[in-house]
Simulated scan of single mutants.
Amino acid sequence: MTRPTIADLARAAGVGTATVDRVLNGRPNVREETVRRVHDAAERIGYHGANIIRHRMLADKPEFRLGLILQKSQHAFYQETLRLFEAQARASTLRRVQITAKFLDDPNPEGLARLLVAMKGRVDAVAATGLDHHAVTQAVQELRASGIPVYSLLSDFAQGVRESYFGTNNLKVGRIAGWFISRLARNPGKVGLFIGGPRFHGHELRETGFRSYFRESAPDFLLLETQINLETRQLTYEATVNLLSRHQDLVGLYCAGGGMEGAIQAVREMRKPGQVVLIVNELTPESQAGLQDGSLSVVLSTPIKQIAADLIQQMIEASERGLTETPGQRFFPAQIWTPESEFMM
C-alpha cells in the first residue's frame, strides 16, 4: 500500500496543495480552522506528517496539566483506561495536554484523599475513580478552594462538591444486567450478586437497579443476599465456588464491580456453558476469553475512549470559564458485548 501524498491530503481536507504545503512548512497567513482541517484529514488517511502538523498547531497553545487517579495499576482495565486517556491527550488540538497519572492499588478512602491533595499545585484539573467517603469529599473541597476542579470517573463521589461525574448511568446498567439474566436463563431460579463494597457509589447504584428490575419485571427469580468481594479475584472465586456448590438451582450471577476473573474461573470449572448466566462489567482479555468459551454470557463495558475525549475537552473549557456553581453529571451509554460480538482489542 502506497503512502498518502500531499495531493491525497489536499483532497481529503478539501483544500489546495498549496495550502497543504503552507501548513506543512509552518508558513504564516493560514487560518487555524484550515490547519485543524488539514491535521484531521492527515490523521484520517494516515499521512506521515500528521504529527508535524499537530506540533506546529500546538506550538503557541498553553499547557494543560491533567491529574488522573485510577485503581489497581496491574489490572488490564485500568491500564487500558490510562492508555486511552493518554491517546486522547495527544489528540487534543485545544491545549498541550500533559497527564500526571497515579494508581491506588489499595482502594481505601484515606489513600485516595491523600493522592487528591497531593495534586494541588501540580495540575489544573483532576479526574479520579474511587470510594465515596467524607475524607474524599474534604479533599475535593480543598482542591476546589484552590481553583482545581475534580471530576469523578466511573463511580461517583463527593456529590455537590466535585465538578461533574463522567461515566455510565450505573442504575440503568444494573437494570440491563437484570434484564439479560431474566431473558437468558433457561428457567427462573436463584440469582447472585457481587459488589466491591458499600463505599463504591456506582456499585450501590448497580445493585439498586438490578434488584428493582427483578422486583418489578421478573418476580419469579429469587435474589440471594448481596456479597461483598472487595474487587479481588481470589475472594470472588471462592465465593462463587461456594454459591455454585450450595445452590444447584443458581441460574444467574452478576459481578457489578471488580473481581470478575474469579467468577469466570469458577463458572468455567463448575458449570457447562449456558447453565449459569454470568454478567460482568468491562471488556478485558479475560472477559473476552470468557465470552468465547461460553462461561460468560454478557459484558457491559464503559466507553472509555469517548469519555476521555469529552472529559478532556470539558476540563479545558472549564479552566477558561471557571468552576461551575451547579455540579453536574454526564452519562454515557454502556456498551454491550456478547459471544457473537466482533472484538477489536
Rank of each mutant, 00 (worst) to 15 (best):
M1P: 12
A7E: 12
A7W: 09
D8L: 01
D8F: 01
A13L: 02
G16T: 15
T17M: 13
L24P: 12
G26F: 12
P28T: 07
E32R: 13
E32K: 09
E33L: 10
T34M: 06
V38G: 05
V38Q: 02
Y47T: 02
A50V: 05
R54E: 01
A59P: 02
D60V: 05
K61A: 02
P62F: 01
Q71C: 14
F77D: 06
Y78H: 15
T81D: 03
L84P: 08
F85W: 02
R95V: 03
P107K: 09
L112D: 06
L112I: 10
L115I: 04
A127I: 00
A128Y: 03
Q138N: 13
Q141A: 13
R144N: 11
P149C: 05
V150F: 00
S152V: 01
S152R: 00
D156F: 07
V161W: 12
E163D: 10
Y165Q: 03
K172V: 15
V173C: 06
I176E: 08
I181S: 05
I181C: 04
R183G: 04
I195E: 07
L205I: 08
E207D: 09
E207N: 11
D220A: 15
L222R: 14
N229P: 00
E231G: 05
E231S: 11
L235Q: 03
T236A: 07
V241E: 12
L244Y: 04
R246H: 08
L253I: 01
Y254C: 07
G258A: 11
G259F: 03
A263W: 02
I264V: 11
R268Y: 14
E269P: 13
M270H: 11
G274D: 07
G274Y: 11
L278E: 09
I279S: 07
V280I: 09
N281M: 09
E282S: 04
P285Y: 07
P285V: 08
S287T: 15
Q288T: 12
A289N: 12
S295M: 12
L296Q: 08
V298C: 06
L300Y: 01
S301M: 06
P303R: 00
P303Q: 02
A308Y: 01
Q314L: 10
M315Y: 06
E320N: 09
E320G: 07
G322P: 04
Q329N: 14
F331Q: 05
F331R: 04
A334G: 01
Q335D: 14
I336S: 05
W337V: 08
P339L: 06
S341G: 06
M345F: 15
